[in-house]
Design a protein around this nucleic acid. Structure first.
Lengths: 339, 339
DNA sequence: CCCGCAACGGAAAACCTTTTCCGAGACCGA
DNA sequence: TCGGTCTCGGAAAAGGTTTTCCGTTGCGGG
């Protein structure tokens, strides 16, 4: 039903080849012809059929984004960045949400391969290691963004969790805090270990002692944050700062501190992780948090995938810096952005 | 690089037409031939090129999902339902996240049209009315899911906000609550008015008086929930139940009630809206909430778009029932699912 | 006035698959 | 043994665009 190139050609009284050249600024055409053809195409609302173009070029100008993130919490900001990077190349994104069933993921991959996507970005619910994507014998650029994978040859893009932890520790130390407790997620997550190590490094640099009994691992939930604070207080651990592995944990912790009569940031300064606006901003007081800058991660992922599609292979894991977003849970007023 | 049908044909010693027939169960082929071709195709990892198929069929087996929902809070569950409906048809989804800039949206639409999508689903940040999608002179099935549109001829799919409000009121009334306050979002939202009217209808049916001073409109935020409760208590309004326009509002309200020494559900029973797991489950006590069942909405949207692609036009707005999800903020133990 | 070259635009192949139409061979019955 | 019918598989067109290659026209110079 939409106008085809032959319609334009007929209407303009030229051949289809000429129309193509006129519209794509190719070949040698009289300026008059070019203008005329363009006018006709405009009038008919001609829009080249990408399917035909793709078939010819051997590229679909399309990529797949496979995301098992349940609520889009991570994948939507990522997508936003990816689109920003891909938009100039006029590349569109297929979003696939497989369930945990590997068979379902295989079906999605098969569909993407059949659609001849130019590349695939894989993102996970959390950054725990996942098995590499199974492409069968096909060869296609694959990039893991905000996802770890059990394959050293894979291309991974991750937030710098160590740097994020370091940033948090540095911020708290500079504000004069001396005893920083750390309530975080399950130890099996690489991100958990990295963030903890970053915090430890910052504390060492500041000349602060590291005390293992101030580190508590548990589930990624608000209630864990509450429980952990309650436990710390019950055990009469002394701490004047708290770095939490997620904003949700931090929120639970802050609530518990308040309910136990501790002032935030007066008695305890708190830094969260994720900068999940909806949690961080609604906490009382609003949470200072480490922002993994997922949109920028998505943008870099898009650019890097583009390079891979262009033929540059770039195996290995790359990390991107986190930012410190200052709100009111540390008593610091200035807004600093770390590189 | 991937195997083409001619490769299979050459390898199997037959013509390409025969390969196609063997793989698609068409035509009259000796079982032996069919099996042989299939084996060769399997061995070569042949996968038909969807681009070529689409070009031939005049359908891309692809749809566009345009979502301006910032964090994927609504669009991801919707997408999940849509994929479920479209999976059997082997249709994939392009996800576009336009900014608020109309020009950006136009570019996205142009890209989708160029890719010859079979249809488009539009979803919004909130269900406030938006202008219809501008397709130029193109004609293509468009469905608005979880979005209202200023065009009676458009096809809209919405949760039954009135029914949801009714469900909440009914539940509270059945539990013996008599004075139900209502803290909700801005009045300009149709959803806000519908939910309020549903609540009012349920209260009338239960013989409960409607008191306008127990209805408070404000922003969609936790802090508004806290503020509204504080105001109600300061004004010494008497209420034994609370229906909130969102789970976030409800969470703020519950926190404020607790901090003012009111027991939930003892003194006040609370029902939220959205059933946003991450908020509802972490509230103390966990929130009973009205679930707009976005996944089912997505599924219906997919099925309906499929019908439209098939030629059945179905203009007008359709609403889908909400479900009541019982947790602990009302003191009711049973789990009921309303139709 | 004619030759040659430049400028312009057309024809056709290529991308990959499906499907229709048709031809060839085989088998059966007369 | 021959004609007819059935079974099987091949040839070719179609879908829309781009690009290469080539042909034609017109103009300038000799």
């Amino acid at each position: 039903m939409p106008a085809k190139i032959v319609d334009v050609a007929r209407e303009a009284g030229v051949s289809v080849g000429t129309v193509s050249k006129a519209l794509n600024d190719r070949g040698q055409l009289k300026p008059h012809t070019r203008a005329h053809v363009r006018a006709v195409a405009e009038r008919l609302g001609f829009r080249p059929n990408d399917l035909a173009q793709s078939l010819l070029r051997g590229r679909s100008f399309t990529i797949g984004l496979i995301s098992s993130d349940r609520f889009g919490r991570f994948s939507i900001p990522l997508l936003e960045g990816i689109e920003e990077a891909l938009d100039p190349e006029r590349i569109a994104v297929f979003l696939c949400k497989p369930t945990d069933d590997p068979e379902h993921e295989r079906r999605h991959v098969a569909a993407l391969l059949a659609k001849r996507v130019d590349g695939i970005i894989v993102t996970a619910r959390r950054t725990d290691p996942r098995r590499p994507l199974d492409l069968g014998r096909e060869v296609l650029p694959v990039l893991y963004a905000y996802a770890r994978v059990e394959d050293d040859a894979a291309t991974c893009l991750l937030p710098d969790d160590f740097g994020g932890g370091h940033l948090a520790g540095q911020h708290l130390a500079r504000l004069g805090r001396r005893a920083i407790a750390h309530i975080t997620g399950p130890d099996r997550f690489d991100a958990v270990r990295q963030r903890r190590d970053g915090l430890r490094a910052a504390m060492r640099e500041a000349g602060l002692p590291w005390r293992e009994e101030l580190v508590l691992s548990g589930p990624w939930s608000e209630s864990w944050g509450r429980e952990a604070v309650t436990r710390l207080l019950a055990e009469r651990r002394r701490f004047d700062a708290l770095f939490c592995g997620s904003d949700q944990i931090a929120r639970g912790a802050v609530d518990a501190l308040r309910e136990h009569g501790k002032a935030v940031p007066g008695d305890v300064a708190v830094v969260g992780f994720d900068n999940w606006e909806i949690v961080a901003a609604e906490t009382r007081p609003p949470l200072t948090s480490i922002d993994p800058d997922l949109m920028e991660l998505g943008r870099q992922a898009g650019l890097r995938l583009l390079a891979m599609i262009g033929g540059e292979s770039q195996p290995g894991t790359t990390t991107l810096p986190c930012r410190l977003v200052v709100r009111q849970s540390c008593g610091a007023a200035e807004t600093r952005t770390a590189a």
